[in-house]
Amino acid sequence: MDNLALENINLGHGSGGRMTRDLLDNIIFKTFNNPYLNQKHDGSIVKFKGEIAISTDSFVVSPIFFKGGNIGELAVHGTVNDVAMCGAVPKYLSLAFIIEEGLKIADFVTIVNAIKKAADASGVLIITGDTKVVERGKGDKIFINTTGFGEVHPKGSIATDNIKVGDKIIINGSIAQHGMAIMSERQGLEFESDIVSDTTNLNFLTNKLLDVFGNKIHFFRDPTRGGLSSVLSEIATDINKGIAIYESKIPLEKQVAAACEILGLDPMYVANEGVFITIVDSSIENEVVALMRKDSKGKNTSCIGEVTGDHPSKVIMHNTIGGKRIVTPLIGEQLPRIC
């Protein structure tokens, strides 16, 4: 416990020796306390029924604390959601930290607690992990990698091959909140707002959709980095069919729209963390929307468009004044404009 009286993480915490062990015992094992992790072995052995879905993601967000969450819950939600988007039920997560020396131990504890809370709420266990410490300047406070393992839902069949002309594209909520929440706290962008990140787990809602509608749910995808535009463009290219969307149907909070307007950013390219789209058979459009709207993660659900036989590989947005435009994927980072 001695070294935890220290204020900051130092290189000793990543040495693999006594200090590492103390850090793990006093923070990691204590917090995540489960039979798999408690074996304190190099890895864990788990049982799965049938096919498994695996997804990995690294989290490097800056700042690490932002309105609506921190890097810890993001690291859980991001990977849980990626597994869920495969049409699977997330069960287990691995958890690896790369910590820059000097990180406050109090901050580390806050992040670990957020991970625990998010994992519990998502119904997943942390079953293996790793902690490395790098010299100051060789990281940015803390990076987290998580890998998620899930059982493919017995009725799930999620693949781009299933998407056909006429399918409806449904989104569960308002776009651009996470990206704008992060943006509002970045250095050099002086604007204050109450926009909070939408980071949350989506697995129970996607599972429910598969429970009820089975293989009529053709596809899931969460538009994180690159935003809704990038994801739709990728899908259109992959399926070699057209996608038509309607600007007026895309949920966007007034405050987020205003912040994007001020900063000259297009919300269609801004990152989300609690948003997913599902592409479904047109026969179940209304039922899917009704079911999703009843769920706390889908109150603003909206059918935003459909898959079409026209303009293959292209996404066309119909805007509020009756014009049309091509929606293209984001090329590098979205950059604020001069005037």
Partner: peptide, 9 residues
């Protein structure tokens, strides 16, 4: 003009 599709209208 371009984003709103006005050129085509």
């Amino acid at each position: 003009l371009v984003k709103n599709g006005i050129l085509d209208l």
